[in-house]
Design a protein around this nucleic acid. Structure first.
Length: 422
RNA sequence: GUGGGUGUAGCUCAGUUGGUCAGAGCGUCUGGUUGUGGCCCAGAAGGUCGAGGGUUCAAGUCCCUUCACUCACCCCA
């Protein structure tokens, strides 16, 4: 029986790494423009951290975490909790009043895999601690929209407000009353939701439920004055930044810690996994985890989903050259000389390779072609005797005779290759 | 946890009502006269048809079981 990767765990093969790097490069570039600093966090944390931050009653904590029960540690299902832990542990609030941080890495959830949802998946996690300004909310959404724009992916922004501990309970009671009157018309899932997480009834996908909740009281009509002001501030700021958005009053959050602003970038090209980026404000979280009373907001972007979008958007990157020069050695002497020459070229900053298995010249030419090498240098007994060797330009087929020494060859290739530094 | 779909060469897939059905394309390798890639041509390697059991003279082809993958539900980035 062959050993295979675990269900929901995927290898990212060399042919896909290019697109992943592109995503990561754009992410880091844009984040730096927005003055964010990268932080790298452990993958394993105390189980309690997630239970307290995400919510002990959530599906994630109840049944989706990879936990070593004998050690009470868990593979992180998301990054926000870890980042908060690090922020508190290192008293980062003392270093500067507003911390703008991001991290990229794998997360683990034991869910049933499907399109755009794996058990090990990767997220970009962006968090700002120390400001409750509504402008910050809009700034993060602008950041998200710029990320999509720079990657050439289209996704639309939806926003909502979940209120705060002052206004949500009252709304929740109203909603429960509304649902109670219609409980018979709702699907079985929604009947269960009405007990566990009533807000979730609002975004049920079933038509019957949608019709029923269409007239439901909406969160954003029942915000307390402070939350209402904040929400309208967010909207004004988005308009000032010309970031297109729509209000989705049925949008809910799965994690307990969110308050006020929530937002998602959604797409219709990922099957049922519409959200490619989602986040919101969590003003009480840091305090709840034992830190200072400091507000925060953040979002997570699903990188697998982003990669899927990039692949579907028909942006063929074209095969890049893997190496600058392939050295074709003929016979034992030619191969031996070429072996040392390739090593020298590499030490000189060029990407070089050769065949080590004594293949025919024709076969070596094919290898060079397949690798997209810009040049092929041929070394056989004639060349060793004459101290000169032909260098073939694989694009044009033209060949020049070069003096058979490292410096001449290296210099010639460097003068004609692009994308080399130094 | 629940439901649907699919499992035939490295990859993408054909395989009619069970009877040369073990195939194609791509990829790989070799060759198409001495040491030159792409295109073309020729040839080769490569598969216990996911696994196990059953029906039958005969099973990728029918039945059962099982495993895997996949999409969707739940939930969620």
């Amino acid at each position: 029986m062959k050993i295979k990767a675990l269900n929901g765990f995927k290898d990212i093969l060399p042919e896909d790494v290019g697109i992943w790097r592109r995503v990561e490069d754009v992410v880091r570039d844009v984040l730096e423009r927005f003055h964010f600093a990268e932080i790298r966090l452990p993958i394993l944390e105390k189980t309690e951290l997630f239970a307290r931050s995400i919510g002990a009653d959530t599906d994630i904590v109840e049944k989706e975490m990879y936990t070593f029960t004998d050690k009470q540690v868990t593979m992180r299902p998301e990054a926000t909790a870890s980042l908060m832990r690090a922020y508190i542990e290192h008293s980062m609030h003392a270093a500067r009043p507003v911390q703008r941080l991001f991290t990229i890495g794998p997360m683990f959830r034991h869910e049933r895999p499907q399109k755009g949802r794996l058990r090990q998946f990767h997220q970009l996690d962006v968090e700002v601690l120390g400001s409750s300004s509504y402008r910050l909310d809009a700034e993060l959404m602008s950041l998200g929209s710029l990320l999509f724009a720079e990657l050439g992916v289209s996704a639309s922004l939806e926003i909502n407000s979940l209120g705060c501990p002052d206004c949500r309970p009252a709304y929740r009671r109203q909603l429960l009353e509304f649902i109670g009157d219609r409980i018979g018309q709702l699907c079985s899932d929604c009947r269960r939701r009405s007990l566990t997480n009533p807000l979730r009834v609002l975004d049920c996908k079933k038509d019957g439920c949608r019709q029923q909740v269409a007239q439901a009281p909406s969160l954003i009509d029942h915000l307390c004055p402070a939350c209402a002001d904040h929400f309208s501030g967010v909207r004004d700021s988005l308009e000032r930044l010309s970031v297109p958005y729509s209000v989705n009053k049925f949008m809910v959050r799965g994690l307990d810690y969110y308050v006020r602003t929530t937002f998602e970038f959604v797409t219709d090209r990922l099957g049922s996994q519409a959200a490619v980026c989602a986040g919101g404000r969590y003003d009480g979280l840091i305090e709840m985890l034992g830190g200072p009373k400091i507000p925060g907001i953040g979002f997570a972007m699903g990188l697998e989903r982003l990669v899927l979008l990039l692949k579907s958007s028909d942006q063929t990157p074209g095969q890049a050259a893997e190496i600058d020069v392939f050295v074709a050695g003929l016979g034992e002497r030619g191969s031996g000389y070429g072996f040392a020459l390739v090593d020298g070229l590499r030490r000189d900053g060029l990407r070089a390779d050769m065949d080590l298995d004594g293949k025919s010249l024709k076969s070596q030419m094919k290898q060079a072609d397949k690798a997209g090498s810009r040049f092929v240098l041929i070394i056989g007994d004639q060349e060793l005797a004459g101290r000169r060797a032909p260098l073939r330009d694989m694009a044009t087929g033209e060949q020049v005779e070069l003096a058979l020494d490292l410096e001449s060859i290296s210099t010639y290739i460097k003068e004609r290759s692009s994308g080399l530094d130094g």
